[in-house]
Design a protein around this nucleic acid. Structure first.
Length: 696
RNA sequence: GCGCGCUUAGCUCAGUUGGUUAGAGCGACUGUUUUACACACAGUAGGCCGGGGGUCCGAAUCCCUCAGCGCGCACCA
């Protein structure tokens, strides 16, 4: 017996060595796996952002996806887990801008190409760091197939999809209301904003004969339309199109009465003025009635010339002063300070989103969401846990056209050209003179949405034929809107097939108190610290046992400690068994008992109940195998059965290692190596074959 | 406002399709230096399964309702 068994299990010493053994074996690549493997099983890894360290959420998904992959590999599938790295467009640009800020620099004014190159260098460096962390978590993914979301073929294919969609009239250029972040100087999609309820003063002003209410007096300079519901009896004497002279912020103006059903008669006074450039609903009303649309606030969030003396002021500073002026003019009627409204903010910097009207590219969602809903109806895609199907449907049924243009350099360029009113979608410059290239880049989710296709070499790669559609998409439930729907849509649109049949959604990893981890709260736990302290196997068990899909997890250090102890328990079981000579046939009763367990666990695994499977094998190994079977076998005990039991103990150890391997790959492989086996444990045969309904 | 989820032992959580005395880990308590392991072992205590109502032979599990907590979505100016 190896002398290393005389000391407690040492994960740090073991893990790198074992990982290298696996990687050098080539078996992460299913094409190298032994035996006649007919069926493929494929998982696409959600590519971690290459802009920093892995967090606990990454550790969780790597554990889960590795468990699935290792299980399927042992079950005889061509198991393929496709790793990637995400350039993470806007997110990385935000991280990089913070870095620039610290260095006293700013992206504004920088040459776009220089800026791009700098972010690229930054990202590639972080990519290596990220990859080494994924390895240290034991991921048995096929690195030979790794992709980066800015690989040349990914860029090209993304642009080709855009061109195809342009031809199919599924993308269009439109002047519409968009979410504008005045700090980051870019538009954002709905999922990149967050709405928070806030207490904002609600002002009532005298507007000619009317009383209007608003939370945004600073937008009111250009307001020359007063809108009410056509059925509102209070205002029946005013007719649509009628004009009125009235005194407003900067002097007398002419206002026009507009009747529109969008107005809620029961809210406020039932009358409002509109600012079409800076409000979605106002823009819609203005469009319906063909009204003037004028910009009041500039792209930096400051008031324009139209505000006269307030021009150049920031919204925050201007608001109160404008109210003061209106009050001085006797136009302020009252202020409701208890009013609560919803304020949209940039999800990265919390800057209040300023709705602006801008020419942008949009994806027409309705025909595409229909494809996705059909696929769900036909059960071509299912969700675990299944209540997410409802959430998914809700989003699909209510999604509005998707703004895919971003005014940042860090991303894939939109292949579009403009000349006057002409618009051409093309990677190359169109023939003729006077073309201007679109300077915008794609929303990251536009390319990430095609990730399962790109990872398998769509449209004509070998892997596309062999491994697409993939099987499971395992990701966080926070991506149910951002990512999952886009992948299903693009998969159906481009390949005619859903990119996967199962969506497994894991919960968030929170701190020990169940609070969300965040840098500002200072409660972030670095998974790398935990693995070096307790071992990767212990961390993986902690993240998996008792953690039901879709439910958030409180990461507690005492739990990890418990599984570190378990690793050591297993270590000592091995030590004990290895100290015996392997003689005698396995005991019939005990092997049957084990087979029943293996069957049970196999069913749990196949039905994605990893939280139960892990707990069962844990309980068996410790409390049945060690506490009872081994104890009873000891010669010192009355009726101790060594050495007749030795064969049984070897049988149970070997097969327990197999069942445990997906969960605790390092220590099981390490012990396996001491059993003088020909193969690596990672390619051993799983000890139960559910297809044949019997142990093998 | 709409939707989803949660509420089970001191703490963190399991409990697959309703079926015998409700489970785990940690913690607490009492013992044990028994040569695989003190990162251990043997054992003990602790729960009207959030409240109320219903269906059923039978409910932690299904239905209704109330309360508290968490999360998501939301163009009422």
């Amino acid at each position: 017996m190896n002398s290393k068994f005389l000391t407690p299990y040492n994960p740090e010493e073991t893990e790198n060595r074992i990982y290298k053994l696996w990687e050098d074996s080539g078996f992460f690549n299913p094409d190298n796996l032994p035996g006649d493997r007919k069926k493929a099983f494929t998982i696409v890894m959600p590519p971690p952002n290459a802009n920093g360290n892995l967090h606990s959420g990454h550790a969780l998904f790597i554990a889960l996806e590795d468990i699935i992959t290792r299980f399927k590999r042992m079950r005889g599938y061509k198991a393929l887990w496709l790793p990637g790295a995400d350039h993470a467009g806007f997110e990385t640009q935000v991280v990089f801008e913070k870095k620039l800020e610290k260095e006293g620099r700013s992206r504004f004014g920088m040459d776009p190409e220089v800026l791009y190159q700098e972010i690229l260098n930054f990202t590639l460096k972080n990519k290596e760091n990220m990859e080494s962390q994924v390895r240290s978590l034991g991921a048995s993914c096929d690195w030979s197939r790794e992709k980066f979301t800015l690989d040349p073929d990914v860029i090209k294919k993304t642009q080709e999809t855009f061109i195809k969609m342009f031809k199919d009239t599924l993308v269009y250029r439109g002047k519409r209301t968009i979410n504008w972040c005045s700090k980051h100087q870019t538009s954002l999609s709905e999922v990149e904003t967050e709405s928070v309820e806030e207490n904002t003063p609600f002002y009532y002003f005298k507007y000619g004969p009317f009383e209007i209410g608003t939370v945004r007096p600073e937008t009111k300079f250009g307001d020359k339309y007063v809108v009410m519901h056509p059925d509102d009896k209070r205002y029946a004497k005013y007719s649509h199109g009628e004009t009125l002279e009235l005194e407003w912020i900067n002097g007398p103006i002419t206002a026009t009465v507009i009747k529109d059903e969008a107005v809620d008669m029961n809210f406020g006074t039932g009358v409002m003025t509109i600012t079409p450039w800076h409000s979605q609903i106002d823009f819609e009303i203005a469009t319906r009635h063909n009204l003037d649309i004028e910009q009041i606030i500039d792209w930096r969030g400051k008031l324009l010339e139209i505000a006269k003396e307030f021009g150049g002021m920031k919204i925050k500073d201007a608001r109160e002063k404008i109210v003061e002026k209106l009050d001085a003019k006797g136009l302020l009627i009252k202020t409701d300070r208890d009013y609560k409204n919803i304020v949209k903010r940039c999800y990265k910097c919390s800057t209040i989103i300023e709705p602006q009207v801008k020419d942008q590219w949009f994806v027409k969602m309705e025909p595409l969401t229909k494809l996705a809903l059909d696929a769900v109806d036909k059960k071509e895609v299912r969700f675990i846990p299944d209540n997410y199907e409802k959430v998914f449907r809700y989003w699909m049924e209510n999604s509005i056209d998707w703004n895919i243009s971003r005014q940042i350099v860090w991303g894939i360029q939109i292949p579009a050209w403009f000349r006057g009113e002409e618009i051409v979608a093309s990677i190359e410059k169109p023939d003729g003179e006077g073309w201007t290239k679109d300077s915008d880049t794609f929303d990251t989710w536009f390319s990430s949405g095609q990730w399962p296709l790109f990872m398998t070499g769509y449209p004509d790669g070998d892997d596309y034929k062999r491994y697409y559609p993939t099987d499971v998409m395992e990701t966080g439930h926070d991506l149910i809107f951002k990512w999952v729907p886009r992948m299903i849509i693009f998969g159906l649109y481009l390949s005619g097939k859903s990119p996967f049949h199962t969506v497994y959604l894991h919960g968030l990893v929170n701190d020990a108190q169940g609070k969300k981890m965040s840098k500002s709260k200072g409660n972030v736990v670095d998974p790398m610290t935990l693995t070096s302290k307790y071992g990767t196997d212990a961390l993986r068990m902690t993240l998996v046992v008792g953690n039901t899909p879709g439910t958030d997890l409180s990461l507690r250090e005492d739990k990890i400690k418990g599984y570190k102890n378990f690793a050591n328990k297993l270590w000592n079981i091995a030590r004990f068994v290895l100290s015996q000579e392997n003689t005698g046939e396995p005991d019939k009763e005990l092997t049957h008992e084990f087979e029943a367990l293996a069957k049970d666990i196999t069913l749990d695994m196949e039905n994605y109940r990893f939280h139960i499977a892990a707990e069962k094998i844990y309980a068996y190994v410790w409390h049945r195998f060690a506490d009872e079977i081994i104890e009873e076998s000891k010669p010192a005990r009355a009726g101790g059965k060594i050495p007749e039991r030795a064969g049984t103990l070897y049988y149970l150890l070997e097969n327990s290692l197999k069942l445990l391997h997906p969960f605790m790959p390092f220590i099981t492989e390490e012990i396996w190596g001491e059993l003088s086996k020909e193969n690596l444990l990672m390619i051993e045969t799983w000890p139960f074959d559910s297809a044949q309904g019997k142990p093998i």
